[in-house]
């Protein structure tokens, strides 16, 4: 079955269920509502992310982008909603998901080294009583090399630049060897070389048949990096392929007056601002 109406701005207050989620979608969300206190941050959102693709979640500040991701993962509780990962409830698909949280969410003075952080991605596989095997240690080292940080393994994490911190988080996710990668603002506050390195790693994952979903804030790179886009402002505004969904009309519906006409012009989008 086809996922709900694509590339069309949804009507406000749309509460109708768009049907059962397609079983092959790496991440399908139905009727998700999350609230902080009594203020919903995400309201009755449906989303269906495609397989073997890079998807961006975009929207203004405070629109619920990160909240959507965290609630889908169960990091924060949801009021209502169903989340399926490759057709199974998210709680039973943990080993297929790798999560890259926001860099600012942890204390970088924590007494730990780069390689220790990457090995955290293997904790579930090692279990409570197990020992980290030689193969697993090598695997963590390989993942560091994939993000260009092989020489940083013994370094204390407080001595890293912002871009290097982000790479370490990505390496930790790679160590999980998952099928779905969820990233929260992976390019926020990183240098240009790190951004290129991360994009390369993500594109390689896509080429290997994995799905990548990233909360993204830089509209100017959406077309260059992503295949699929999900626009949110508390409610779902639109979702679909970048070519047909990343339009001036949808961006206006998402950002309202917060996006100046000049910014839209700079994106050289199809379609006029309404």
């Amino acid at each position: 079955m086809t996922p709900g109406p694509l590339s069309v701005a949804a009507q406000d207050g749309r509460l109708l269920d768009s049907g059962a989620p397609p079983p092959d979608s790496p991440l399908a969300i139905r009727g998700l509502t999350v609230s902080y206190g009594e203020r919903p941050a995400v309201f009755s959102v449906d989303a269906t992310f495609p397989a073997r693709a890079m998807s961006a979640i975009i929207g203004p500040n405070g629109a619920g982008k990160s909240t959507l991701l965290k609630a889908a993962l169960g990091v924060i509780p949801r009021v209502t909603g169903e989340v399926r990962v490759f057709g199974t409830p998210v709680e039973r698909a943990r080993d297929r998901i790798a999560y890259v949280p926001q860099r600012a969410s942890v204390d970088w003075d924590f007494p730990t080294t780069v390689i220790d952080v990457v090995q955290m991605g293997l904790y579930r596989k090692v279990g409570l009583l197990g020992r980290m095997s030689g193969a697993q240690t090598r695997r963590a080292q390989d993942c560091l090399a994939r993000v260009g940080m092989a020489d940083f393994a013994p370094r204390q994490i407080g001595q890293l630049s912002g871009g290097q911190q982000q790479r370490v988080f990505l390496a930790r996710a790679l160590a999980q060897d998952a099928d779905l990668y969820l990233l929260d603002e992976p390019f926020a506050g990183v240098d240009a070389a790190t951004e290129r390195a991360i994009v390369e790693v993500l594109k390689l994952l896509r080429a290997q048949g994995k799905a990548v979903v990233a909360v993204h804030h830089d509209l100017s790179t959406v077309r260059g990096y992503f295949d699929h886009v999900f626009l949110i402002n508390t409610r779902r505004i639109a979702e679909g392929p970048v070519a047909t969904t990343f339009t001036a009309a949808n961006l206006h519906a998402t950002y309202g007056g917060r996006l100046a006409v000049a910014q839209l012009d700079a994106l050289a989008l199809a379609g006029a601002v309404p």
Binding site: R94, S105, V106, F110, V117, L128
Partner: peptide, 21 residues
């Protein structure tokens, strides 16, 4: 000793720990 890994993970990055299950 038994709980050292989960407790380290939760102290460092509780969000990631929750995502791991």
């Amino acid at each position: 000793w038994l709980l050292r890994r989960p407790m380290t993970l939760v102290a460092f990055d509780p969000g990631y720990a929750a995502a791991l299950g």
